[in-house]
Design a protein around this nucleic acid. Structure first.
Lengths: 143, 143
DNA sequence: ATACACCTTCCAGTATACTAGAAGGTCAAG
DNA sequence: CTTGACCTTCTAGTATACTGGAAGGTGTAT
């Protein structure tokens, strides 16, 4: 049993997650409150290293902290490998990504259309506030 | 000359932008500070209606307030139809959209891969913290 | 003894674009 | 004169995931 007490700085070093963030995760409820030394220093074990690395990986997958929390809570409640919940979460997330992508593509296309119109500005007829706005204010009154 | 004094409620009604938002735009510097009545009520003109509608349209194109501000300031500085700046802005914006889309696609694909692996869990070998995390904490200690 | 790195808590700020609500003034109608 | 709809300013909250800094305690080496 290597019960090496890892202080927060070490944990940070081993995981690449800042101490601020570690404390934040604890407060957020995604990391367990660790034991403390006599002088109130947090100390962690290898388990915490693993858990934090797991969180990190989940984040890289694009999960939000709240979603990671869900997964962790479910796992802690002893629910099997909690695959249904996670599968559900992932499916929803994928859908969300798809929606977002469509949305971005739409916005992008609209911008491109505008842009294309400008590139060949053959006739610049009545383009008051629509395309290139020449917004007239009452003189230079802004002080 | 129809110098109808439009109060903020009317402006809101005519543009579909809430009064709160209108005041916020003013503070943000995107809408001019309007004249006031004796009793300190803001009053607006048709020009403001147009400008606000322009802002609304620009927002729909996916521009941020700060970007709209840029465009407006440039226009107010008397820079031609300010097309170069706007073209630039739009080009950058389009690039940003593209990047974001790629990013989302990557995240999406990674999720899908995970998901596919789960759907046919033929061999569930060494999946400690990697796939379906069975995170063991020390009992049911959370109080 | 003191320097230094480390730890603690707490408060505030970041970015974005608002929204909610409180407390109070104004105006026209009845 | 009161009611109700409008207007005002100001403060704070929303969501997200942290980051920064202050003020102060701890532990070890010299």
């Amino acid at each position: 049993m290597q019960n090496k007490k890892i202080l927060i700085g070490k944990l940070s070093e081993e995981t690449g997650v800042s101490t601020k963030t570690i404390r934040y995760y604890e407060e957020f409820g995604i990391l367990d409150k660790p034991k403390r030394t006599r002088s109130d220093y947090r100390f962690y074990s290898q388990k915490d290293v693993d858990k934090l690395l797991f969180i990190k990986k989940a984040k890289e997958l694009g999960l939000k902290l709240s979603e990671i929390k869900e997964i962790i809570y479910c796992a802690e409640d002893g629910l099997k490998p909690c695959c249904n919940l996670v599968r559900n979460l992932f499916t929803k997330k994928i859908k969300k990504y798809e929606d977002k992508i469509v949305e971005l593509n739409t916005a992008k296309k609209r911008l491109e259309e505008k842009l294309n119109k400008w590139v060949k500005p053959k006739q610049a007829k009545k383009m008051k506030y629509s395309v290139c706005p020449q917004i007239e204010t009452e003189g230079r009154k802004r002080k």
